[in-house]
């Protein structure tokens, strides 16, 4: 083996180690998820293909919502209007697709994604122009988007193209791989990975981690925040589409997705202070939370205790994280 080959192998190894180190939290979560799946199989031997596919469909909307929230939080903001944007994009999809052909459905999906991008862009523009704190603007806009959703459709209803519903149900290649999971990972990977590697991605992390420093280094802070919120809107539209895909209808009243997405983001290793974490950790966190709730039903525990557990886990994980930081600060 030549010295150059050894050096190149060393470099590959280094980069693998560096990637693992950067994603410790996500890898740990994945490990925990594997343990949890094994535990589930142990307490409920009939847990099988159907349940895994159900899990895939069940987590899809919240997983996309968590990705959307992840982008906003990494950029140092927070978006409390995600649930409302999901409701709006979902009712628009269901209303437009009702009684229409399959090809028209494709056009609807494209239009709804653009709509999501536009909703997020409005949020971002308002935040940048008015200089009102993100949390206040998105809180106010959550009323606005939910109101518009009710204007589009006063009651749950509408329809969905068969191919859209087909995307969320069933399996892919192997019966153990839910199609919903593939759709989720592929969509997020196609959109987020190129962005993360680009100048825009670096800028989003930079303004989240230290805004004045980012500004002084020549990052266009306003434009980056605007684009980050537009991206959040886009992922919220994906979440709204998956709501329609999994239920076949559109519901104008926002679900509990906004606050649950904040919880998932934090559990997924994204710092609320911004600039830290990724979007895949939150996805794993959503699956873990869902599986814990399922397990508690299998153990014949009151399903409401699952909610308690979710709260305790959320607080516990953040407490643990801040304790480590406090100790580090002292050392």
């Amino acid at each position: 083996m030549t010295a150059a080959a050894i050096a190149s192998r060393q470099r590959t190894l280094d980069s693998v180690v560096a990637t693992a180190r950067r994603n410790t939290w996500t890898i740990g979560l994945l490990g925990f998820l594997a343990l949890l799946l094994a535990f589930t199989k142990l307490i409920q031997p009939s847990y099988g293909v159907a349940a895994v596919q159900g899990l895939g469909i069940g987590v899809l909307p919240l997983a996309f919502a968590a990705v959307a929230q992840g982008v906003a939080v990494i950029g140092g903001g927070i978006d409390l209007s995600i649930g409302s944007m999901m409701a709006l994009t979902s009712v628009v999809t269901a209303t437009a697709m009702q009684g229409q052909g399959e090809e028209f459905g494709v056009a609807v999906v494209v239009a709804v994604l653009l709509l999501g991008l536009a909703l997020g862009a409005v949020n971002g523009a308002l935040i940048v122009i008015t200089r009102v704190p993100d949390i206040v603007v998105t809180l106010a806009m959550s009323f606005v988007w939910a109101g518009v959703a009710l204007l589009v459709r006063a009651a749950p209803g509408g329809g969905a193209s068969h191919w859209l519903m087909g995307l969320a149900t069933g399996s892919f290649a192997n019966e153990w791989v839910p199609k919903a999971a593939v759709v989720l990972v592929v969509t997020v990977a196609i959109i987020w990975i190129p962005i993360r590697g680009s100048r825009l991605g670096l800028s989003i992390y930079a303004i989240g981690s230290n805004r004045p420093a980012a500004f002084r280094s020549g990052v266009a802070v306003g434009r980056t925040r605007f684009l980050a919120y537009a991206l959040t809107g886009l992922f919220a539209a994906f979440a709204g589409l998956s709501l329609t895909a999994s239920t076949g209808i559109g519901t104008p009243v926002p679900g509990p997705y906004t606050l649950e997405s904040v919880a998932a983001v934090v559990l997924g290793g994204v710092s609320l202070a911004g600039g830290r974490g990724g979007v895949f950790g939150p996805i794993v966190a959503v699956v873990v939370l869902q599986l814990i709730a399922t397990d508690m039903t299998f153990l014949n525990m009151d399903s409401n205790l699952a909610l308690v557990a979710q709260g305790v886990i959320l607080i516990g994980v953040v407490m643990f994280g801040s304790l480590i930081q406090l100790r580090r600060a002292r050392a």
Binding site: L272, L305, A306, L307, I315, S322
Partner: peptide, 26 residues
């Protein structure tokens, strides 16, 4: 949580709302 363990108030009270709601359901 907020004062001693420095948990972000948003997260602390959000988590607490899950706990209280769940226990109220029980």
């Amino acid at each position: 949580g907020v004062g001693v363990f420095r948990v972000h108030p948003l997260i602390m009270t959000l988590g607490m709302s899950f706990v209280v709601l769940g226990l109220a359901n029980v």
